[in-house]
Design a binder for these strands. Structure first.
Lengths: 341, 341
DNA sequence: CTGAAAGCGCTAACAC
DNA sequence: GTGTTAGCGCTTTCAG
C-alpha cells in the first residue's frame, strides 16, 4: 500500500469539477443525468469522475435532500430463516422502486433491539420495517413520530403503524382439518409456549377441534419452538393412557423433536402416528424429514411490508392498515390415514 | 394521525438550543458529555432535548466528522446460517468498541453484490467486511482504495485486504482420521462441487487418505452443497461394487441427503455406514439428525474480521494479514466402528 | 445551458 | 464556560 492509503483521500465533486473544467453544480447535474447538460460537458464530467474514481457521498446527498432513498429493516434474529425470507420480499420490492435496504439486528435481545432501531432513526432512513421485534410499543410509537413504520409478524396496534401478519389461527385449523379428513380423531397439539404466533395457533387448534366435534379429544402438551421442546412435549403425550394418532407441532423445529420421540418409542411415521409441522422451513423440505407442514407466505409478507412503506413514503397518510395473509398446507410424507386397528 | 405527521418534522439541534436558551454548540457539547459544560446548563439542554424528542442526525454528524462510527457488512446469503454466526462475532466485537453494524446482502447474485458494496461505500461506512462474496477482485481492490476491507471465508489475495478463513483441508483430514481411527478403510467422499471450500476439502480428503495408506480406497462421488446433491452422490456410491463403510459429506445439508439415500437402501447409520458432515450447522445438532460433523469457528471468524477492521481503523497500515482458523470435529451419533463382518 | 450562492444539521476550532 | 464562525460534500434555487 502506498503512503497515501494510510488515511484514504476521497475525491469530491469539487475535484471532478476542477478536472473537467466546470462548476460543481454542473458536475452534480451531469452525474445524475439531469436534462439540461450539453452532451460534450456531460462526457467530460463522466470521464473526469471515472479517472478520479469518484463515488458520490450518500451522506452529503442525504443531508441536503433530507431523504436517504434507503429503508431500514430491523430483524430480531438472523438465525431464524423466517427473517431471511421476509427480507427477500422486502428487497425485491425495494429494488424495484429505487430504494436500498439496510439491515440491523437485535440478536434476540430487547436492549439491543432498541439500540438497533435507534441506529436506524439516527441514520434517517426514509422508512423503518420492524420484523417481529421485542421492542416496546412505546418505542414503536415514538419512532412513528419521525418516520413511517411497518410491523411484520406482530399484530400490535399503534397509531399510524401498518402491520403485516399471518393468520396463525387459520393455519392451525388447516392442520387439524387435514388430519381429520384423513380419518384422525385423537389429534394432539405440542404447544409453542410463548413463542410468536403460538397463542393464536393454540386457539385455532382448539376451535377447529371443537368445530369438528372433537372437543373431547383435545390434548395439549407443553412445549416451545425448539427441538428439545418438541421432544419433551411428545414424550408426555406418549405416556398418557390414550395415545394420539396424530400430532400438530408448534413449528417445524419442534416437529423434529417429536420425530425423535416417536422413533425412540418405536412408533413409525406416518404408519402409527401422523405429524404436521408449522412454518414450512427448509428443514421441513429435507427428504430426511419430509414434513407435512403449514406454509406461511413469508416472502409475500416482506413484499407487503415494503409496499406499505412505499405508500407512506408517497404521502399516504391516514390510519393504520392491517394486512393479514393466509397460510396454506403443504403435504409431504408425515401424514396418512390412521392404521385401521 | 395529526396533520403534522404527514411530513414528519424533526427537531434539530437549533430547536433544542432555542428551547434551552443556549447556543447550538453548547447543545452539541452537552449532549455528548463534553467536559466543559456547567451542570445546570447540561440539565437544561437534556431536558429540552427530551421534551422535543430530539434525536441526533447521524448523517450530519457523519458528514462533518468524516466518519460514521459504523462498519458495513456484506453477506452473500442470509439463507445460509453460516453468515448469521459470522455476524454474531462481528457485532459482539463492534459493540464493544462503539461501532454500529450495518448489513447489506447480495442474495447470491453477482450484480446485486456489487450494488450492495457500492451502497456501503457511498454510505461511507468506516470499514467494510465482505463475507464470502462473489465480488470481482477488481471491485474488492477498488473498494480498498477508499476504506479498510476485510474478507471472510474467502482466501483471495488483494493488496492491503485482510482475510479470515477456515482451514477446510484440515477439516476434511479430521473427518478422515476420525473414521480411520474407528477402523474404517473404505471411506468415500460425496463432493461439494464448486461450492466455497469444496476444493480444499476434497484435497484434504485425498491427502489424508494417502497419508493413512488408504490411497487405494479413495472414492469421490460428484455432489454439491444441497440435500439433493448429497442424495445423488450417495446413490452412486452405493451402486458401486465395493460399498464404502463410511462417507464424508461436503457439508451438513448434503449429509442429510446421504442419510436419505442410506435409509432407502436399507442401510443403518452408523451400524452399516458411518457418516460425517461438515459445518456443524443447527441442522446437525437436531436429535433427529444427530450428525457427527466438522465445526467451523464461525463466530470467531466474525470476531477476527471485526478486529482486523479495528486495527486498520486505528491506523494500522502495512500488508495484508491472512488469518486461518482451525476447525474441530464434533462427534455425535452417525459414526461408529464398522460392523465386524 | 451554466455558474454563483445558500444551506442541509452538525462539530470543531477559535474567540471572549 | 459559552458563543461565533467556518465548513463537511452535496443539491437546488436563482441569475445570467
Amino acid at each position: 500500500m502506498s503512503e497515501r492509503a494510510e488515511r484514504a483521500w476521497r475525491p469530491t465533486i469539487l475535484d471532478v469539477a476542477a478536472r473537467a473544467g466546470v462548476s460543481k453544480s454542473l458536475v452534480s447535474r451531469a452525474l445524475r443525468d439531469a436534462p439540461t447538460v450539453s452532451p460534450a460537458r456531460r462526457a467530460a464530467v463522466r470521464q473526469a469522475a471515472e479517472e478520479l474514481g469518484y463515488r458520490p457521498n450518500a451522506v452529503a446527498r442525504s443531508l441536503v435532500q433530507r431523504r436517504s432513498h434507503t429503508v431500514g429493516v430491523m430483524v430480531s434474529d438472523l438465525h431464524n430463516l423466517f427473517f431471511a425470507e421476509v427480507l427477500d420480499g422486502v428487497e425485491a420490492v425495494a429494488a424495484g422502486h429505487g430504494y436500498r435496504v439496510l439491515i440491523v439486528t437485535g440478536n434476540r435481545d430487547r436492549a439491543a433491539e432498541e439500540q438497533a432501531l435507534e441506529t436506524l432513526l439516527e441514520l434517517r432512513t426514509d422508512a423503518v420495517i420492524l420484523a417481529s421485534s421485542r421492542l416496546s410499543l412505546r418505542s414503536v410509537a415514538a419512532a412513528r413520530q419521525s418516520v413511517p413504520v411497518t410491523l411484520v409478524a406482530r399484530a400490535a396496534r399503534v397509531a399510524g403503524v401498518d402491520t403485516v401478519t399471518n393468520d396463525d389461527g387459520r393455519g392451525a385449523r388447516l392442520a387439524v382439518e387435514h388430519l381429520a379428513s384423513l380419518g384422525h380423531r385423537r389429534i394432539a397439539l405440542v404447544d409453542g409456549g410463548s413463542g410468536p404466533g403460538s397463542a393464536a395457533r393454540r386457539r385455532g387448534y382448539r376451535a377447529a377441534m371443537g368445530a369438528l366435534g372433537l372437543a373431547d379429544e383435545i390434548g395439549v402438551a407443553a412445549g416451545d419452538f425448539t427441538d428439545e421442546g418438541g421432544y419433551r412435549g411428545a414424550r408426555s403425550l406418549l405416556t398418557g393412557s390414550s395415545r394420539p394418532t396424530a400430532i400438530c407441532a408448534g413449528n417445524d423445529l419442534a416437529a423434529t423433536g417429536v420425530l425423535t420421540a416417536l422413533a425412540e418409542a418405536g412408533l413409525r411415521v406416518p404408519a402409527d402416528v401422523s405429524l404436521v409441522g408449522y412454518d414450512n422451513t427448509a428443514l421441513a423440505a429435507l427428504r430426511h424429514v419430509s414434513l407435512t407442514t403449514i406454509h406461511q407466505p413469508r416472502t409475500e409478507m416482506g413484499e407487503a411490508a415494503m409496499r406499505a412503506a412505499l405508500r407512506r413514503l408517497d404521502g399516504g397518510a391516514g390510519r393504520a392498515r392491517r394486512l393479514v395473509l393466509q397460510p396454506s398446507l403443504v403435504q409431504r410424507a408425515t401424514t396418512a390415514s390412521p392404521a385401521a386397528s
